[in-house]
């Protein structure tokens, strides 16, 4: 089992939540889980595109009362 880290990017419009994810991803290793909280609506398509192009795994993507919660598993690091 890897580590779990939460990244809070709520209220972050520019640069968007991907900026915070990028920082957390650098420190993560394969098997780690990163949870990202965001309020920027652009984050939903962005995280999908990010997952598709980087080849990591999206475990969960939910929106609850304006807060988007994405959980990803790091799988694409060398």
């Amino acid at each position: 089992m890897g580590d779990k880290k939460t990244v809070d990017a709520r209220g972050m419009a520019c640069p968007g939540p991907i900026a915070k994810l990028t920082r957390a991803y650098r420190e993560a290793k394969n098997g780690d889980v990163i949870e990202i909280l965001a309020t920027d609506q652009g984050f939903i398509p962005d995280i999908k595109a990010w997952i598709e192009s980087t080849g990591n795994k999206l475990i969960e993507l939910k929106q609850d009362g304006g807060v988007i919660r994405a959980v990803i598993e790091v799988t694409a690091k060398k």
Binding site: P15, G16, I18, A19, D46, A49, W50, E52, S53
Partner: peptide, 10 residues
């Protein structure tokens, strides 16, 4: 560039 688009906002 690290984000999925060439700028952080699509």
């Amino acid at each position: 560039y690290p984000s999925p688009h060439i700028y952080t906002e699509a």
